[in-house]
């Protein structure tokens, strides 16, 4: 196991809800991220999955320091990224970059592709001296599978997949160590999505990058991730290796999420056990007490309303009646549920 490059502890981000014109009063808090902890190891991809509104994008924004954190720490190579200022912060920005979801709005339509990809060098001139920049931009375009001649064109002349490649080239420009991918393929068609996912996997190998890979599509996350964290209403509810989460999920939310994903095999129709959640995700302004999933959970008891289940290892011995197939691979992993239990055959 390699050492962690990014250690996030008890990260909280609340947005105030204000009312009033002259005298703005805070009438509540949107608890977008509410106590998230994880480690990202070197060269690893940590997948973060969850439904819309669970706080995954806020997590990305806070880690990029695009939004200030309400509390908590995030250590990157021994430094707390939330306490950095000035030159140290600028240096950090070289090391952590982001790829955004919408390739249509995340590129400035008035800049050429060359300018977009080369802009990081303007801000960080120490990375590439002026004379080198053109060559660097061409090289970057080549790396992401675009032709160097494309540098003089504008974003609207490209398709969605190509634009996402431009966004990736921009993120790569400063040779970062960590790239946060916030839904990088969800706006793309299936055939294009596969191209971009392969590119991301290839770049990780080539530049020994670490990814925080945020997506709502569970199949996409499984494909690229080494470890996966499942988020629900601002909290991580389950965390484990890709194998543990997809083959041996123990949190009822993860199980429901996995069983909701349609499997592209008509012969399995009616053969899978399907867990259907009722209702919608509660509002993050006033999340349920105790376990946040209890309002939609079929296992909820009184305990769930009063006590918040911590994200801890449930111990190596399985819950009575449940089995842990697969030996070591299926070993217990952190699950924030009072009654974690493996359900066989959630995923086909």
């Amino acid at each position: 196991m390699s050492e962690p490059i990014l250690q996030v502890r008890d990260l909280v981000k609340h947005f105030p809800v204000k009312r009033g014109v002259l005298f703005r009063r805070t009438i509540g808090q949107v608890k977008a991220v509410d106590g998230v902890s994880f480690d990202l190891n070197k060269g690893e991809t940590l997948g973060v999955v969850g439904e819309s509104g669970c706080g995954k994008s806020t997590l990305a924004q806070v880690l990029m320091r695009l939004e200030p954190a309400t509390s908590g720490t995030a250590m990157f190579e021994g430094q707390d990224i939330f306490s950095l200022r000035g030159a140290a912060l600028r240096k950090l920005r070289r090391d952590i970059q982001i790829v955004l979801q919408d390739p249509y709005t995340s590129l400035n339509p008035r800049m050429t592709v060359g300018d977009i990809v080369g802009e990081p060098f303007e801000i960080h001139p120490e990375v590439a001296p002026k004379g080198d920049r053109q060559a660097k931009v061409r090289e970057l375009l080549d790396v992401v599978g675009l032709s160097p001649e494309h540098a003089n064109r504008y974003p609207h002349q490209f398709s969605g997949g190509q634009r996402q490649r431009i966004g990736i080239a921009r993120a790569l420009a400063l040779r970062p160590k960590v790239i946060i991918c916030d839904e990088p393929v969800s706006a793309l068609d299936v055939s294009i999505q596969a191209q971009v996912m392969n590119l991301l996997a290839e770049l990780r190998r080539e530049f020994s990058l670490s990814y925080v890979f945020i997506a709502h599509d569970l199949s996409v996350v499984r494909h690229l991730s080494d470890r996966v964290g499942v988020m629900y209403l601002g909290r991580m509810v389950e965390m484990g290796t890709e194998q543990q989460i997809y083959e041996h999920p123990t949190h009822p939310y993860t199980q429901a999420l996995l069983s909701s994903v349609p499997v592209p095999d008509p012969s399995l129709r009616g053969q899978r056990e399907i867990i259907r959640l009722t209702g919608d995700v509660p509002s993050p302004v006033s999340p349920p007490s105790g376990c946040r999933f209890r309002t939609r959970c079929w296992k909820a008891r009184d305990l769930c309303a009063t006590e918040t289940p911590p994200l801890v290892d449930p111990g190596t011995s399985p819950v009575e009646g449940a089995t842990w197939p697969g030996g070591d691979e299926g070993a217990a992993h952190p699950s924030a549920c009072h009654f974690p239990e493996e359900k066989p055959k959630v995923v086909a």
């Binding site: 299936v190 055939s191 199949s219 997809y246 994903v261 499997v263």
Partner: peptide, 23 residues
């Protein structure tokens, strides 16, 4: 090609088969 290029929930593939080019 469409079916091959799809990441699947029930298997973790190494590389996805892609459809080259654009529509």
């Amino acid at each position: 090609a469409l079916m091959d290029s799809m990441p699947r929930l029930d298997q973790r593939g190494q590389e996805l088969n892609t459809i080259k080019g654009l529509p």
